Computed example of a mutant assay.
Amino acid sequence: MYVGIDHSTTGIKIAAVDDGGELTTAFRIDRRNVESAEAVLHELNDRVGLTRISLATVTYAFGDAIDEIEGIDHVPNRGVTDLVGLDYGTGAGATVFDRVRDSDVPTVVLPGVHRDLDTLHGFFKHYSALAGPDKVASMRCALERFRAEFDAADTFVWACASSSCMAGLVCDGRLRGFFHWVGPVHGWPDPEAVRRGVETDFDDVFMQCGLLPRCGADLTEVHDLSDPELFESVYWSTMLNVYALYPFARELGSDGLDAIVLSGRLMRRERPVPLGRRVYESCVDIAPVRFAEPYTSAQGAALVARDVAEGAEHVLGIPVGDVPEVAGE
C-alpha cells in the first residue's frame, strides 16, 4: 500500500493506493484542527494500517529547498527555503509532517515547482518558486489517468481552480512549464502589496494578493465561495493560464497536446455558475478535456511513492535522490 499526504490551503488530504495504483481510501484533515493533525498516525492506522504502508509521500508548502525526491530524514526545514509570504506558520501541515517524519513509516518528500528544477523550460525559471509540490502530485495523478485513457498520452496541460488558479504543462512525461497569476486566496504581489509589506511585514503577502483579500473579504470565505463576479475572474485566470501554456505545448510536445485536465474544487461547482463546464467549452477545441476527481493531489502523491518504490529514476522529470528502503523489502 502507498500513501500520499498533501498539504494544501484548505486542508491536509490523505490518500492510499494499492500496488496497481487504484485508490483505496481518501480523507481530509482541516488545517484549523491541530488536534486531528496530532492524531494523523492513529487515523492512518485505522484507515490503512501503518504496517501495510510500503512507502509514503509528503508535500509541504512551496517545497523549494529540494530539487529531487528525497527521504524525509534527509530534508532540512521540511523541504522549504522559508515560509516568508505564505502565512503557514507551524500549523496542522507542519504537525502532520513532523509526526510522519518521527514515525516508522518510510516516507519521501516531493519538491514543488521552482527554478532549480532542470526539467523546466528556461522561460519558467524567472520566479524562484511557482507552486507547491501538491500541484506536482496532482499532475502525476493526471498523467496516470491519461496514459490509461489515451494509450500513453504524455503531453497535457493541467489547470486547477481552487484557492489558487494555476496550470502546469507536461510534455513527453516531464514537467516543462507552469503559470500562476491570481486566484481566490493567492496571487503574485504587485507594488501596492510590496509597499504594505515594507511597512508591516511579509509574513502573508501571497495570502493578501488574491481575489478575496483584494475585495476586502475574509479568507475563511474560501470554504464557501458564492460571488458570481469572483467566479468570472477565476474563469479568466484559468483561461489565461491554459492559453499561455498552449504555445509551449505545441513547441515542446512531440505529438502536440494530447489532453487538458481540469482540477480543483471550483471546477466541480455548479453554483453560482458552472465554472468547469464553461472552461470545458472554451478549451475543447484545443484538445480533449477531462475533469479530475477529488483528492487527486493526495492520490498523485501516493502514486509518486509507488513510482519510487518500483525504482523509478524520475517522476515527471524530477530526479529520485536518496530515499528510504521500502517497508517489507
Rank of each mutant, 00 (worst) to 15 (best):
H186S: 14
Y280N: 10
E270A: 15
D82G: 09
C283S: 08
H180A: 15
A309C: 09
L212A: 05
L117V: 09
I29H: 07
D154A: 10
A244S: 15
V40H: 06
L245N: 05
I12D: 06
M1E: 07
L230Q: 06
D224I: 14
D154W: 06
A305N: 04
P324F: 06
P189H: 02
E43G: 04
V242N: 02
F178V: 01
L44G: 02
T90H: 14
F97A: 06
G20D: 15
V194R: 06
F248V: 10
I69H: 02
D46S: 11
L211D: 07
E38A: 07
V323Y: 02
A94F: 12
P294D: 02
G264F: 02
A161D: 03
E325N: 13
G79M: 05
S162I: 07
A327G: 10
R174W: 01
I69Y: 06
V75G: 01
D46T: 12
A15Y: 00
R196W: 04
A65L: 12
L117S: 05
A16I: 02
V3L: 14
Y2D: 05
V222L: 11
A302S: 06
Q299Y: 05
L240F: 15
T25Q: 08
C283M: 06
I286S: 14
P184K: 01
I286G: 12
V105K: 02
C160L: 14
M1D: 09
I69A: 03
G4W: 00
Y295C: 04
Y246K: 14
D285M: 10
A129T: 15
R101E: 09
G21L: 04
T59V: 02
G300A: 12
D201K: 03
V222N: 12
P191H: 07
P111R: 05
W188F: 13
A298D: 03
K125Q: 09
V242W: 02
V100I: 09
T296D: 14
P319S: 08
D203W: 13
L175W: 00
F179Y: 13
V108H: 04
P324W: 02
G20Q: 14
G210H: 01
G276N: 06
L275D: 01
T107E: 07
L41K: 00
N241M: 09
G49I: 07
D255H: 14
I12T: 12
A37V: 08
T296I: 13
V315F: 00
L83C: 11
F248I: 09
V222I: 15
S103R: 09
S233P: 05
M267C: 11
R174V: 15
P324Y: 00
N45D: 15
A167D: 05
R78S: 10
A259K: 01
A131D: 08
H7W: 04
P111M: 07
C215Y: 13
V304Y: 01
L143R: 08
P191Q: 07
T51M: 14
Q208C: 11
S8Q: 03
P213C: 08
A61I: 10
L262F: 13
H121D: 15
H314W: 13
A148Y: 07
R290L: 14
R271P: 07
V96H: 04
L230K: 01
C209M: 09
H7S: 14
G311D: 09
A167F: 03
M207H: 10
S8M: 03
E192M: 09
I53N: 02
T95E: 11
